[in-house]
Design a binder for these strands. Structure first.
Lengths: 152, 152
DNA sequence: TTTTATTTAATGATATATCATAGATTTGCT
DNA sequence: AGCAAATCTATGATATATCATTAAATAAAA
């Protein structure tokens, strides 16, 4: 049974959460995806980050972040201008609409999380976090080990 | 900190696992994605299932399954013929190559899982499964409640 | 100061996710 | 039988994921 496979449970759970959380945002009438919201939030908190650094934080690919940013700009939630000091870089700034949208969506996100964690003791959540962290570390270690086998 | 948010941890962990697991399949020289492998496995076990039922089992969308199947056929891992008894349906059958690939990849998948769960007690894994199941149920319940508010 | 290496963003190609809908077929109801 | 509802696959549109590569600019090295 697929449910016995822990990675299937992980995948299933995160997908169900996303579906539920996105539906609540949609229902409230906001035109933004969870991923866009996440990237916009990070930029709002740290506007000086480059795409690769944003990608690191949200655990996405640089290319994915680039395309999400493109959409955020198209939606006029984010404003970009070329940096004067380093012309490879781009200076990002949330628009007024961007800030307002973040604020408006924040309580929905909080509520979603609370509902999802309903009936779970704080200890169980801590334990979940720890276990996930262990799995993450195991995978990352093995992945890096295989990809960079010899250090010179 | 994003790491405090349990759904970020979930997302991050599953992504790291996928990356690591896929890299091992690639490195072994097999031309198949984890998702394709999953769908192929389910079809191998239950060839009578329709796209929607397969989608249910692997927790994907029917449309996603349709496109994954399309690729499996293109790769000659799967064979399809129109059903004689119900011409909406399609009879699926793994090709010899499909079966061989599944067998060849199986030990890699097992090893990936074992590595990912390294140092975790069985009790911790059970607990993880339970907690994920609770979150899943919470989200599904809330989602259904909102989408089908009145039962007639 | 040229050359080389690195950084940054953009983009092509392909795979998957999601929602919606179309088209064909079958089933259920009357 | 005849129509409506349900079923099944295919596909369009858009968003995201992933890998690879390019182009431009800067930093580091020779």
């Amino acid at each position: 049974m697929l449910n016995d496979i822990i990675f299937y449970s992980l995948d299933k759970t995160i997908k169900q959460y996303r579906q539920f959380a996105q539906a609540n945002i949609d229902r409230a009438g906001f035109d933004i995806t969870i991923d866009q919201w996440l990237v916009l939030t990070v930029i709002g908190e740290s506007p000086e980050l480059g795409q690769a650094e944003i990608a690191d934080r949200v655990f996405k690919d640089q290319a994915s972040v680039a395309r999400i940013i493109e959409l955020l700009v198209k939606k006029k939630l984010l404003h970009q201008t070329a940096s004067q000091t380093d012309r490879r870089r781009i200076v990002r700034k949330l628009t007024k609409e961007g800030k307002q949208l973040l604020e408006a969506v924040a309580p929905i996100i909080s509520r979603n999380r609370a509902i999802a964690l309903n009936e779970l003791e704080p200890a169980a959540i801590d334990q979940l976090r720890d276990t996930l962290e262990t799995i993450f570390t195991n995978c990352r270690f093995a992945h890096k080990l295989a990809n960079e086998p010899v250090s010179d």
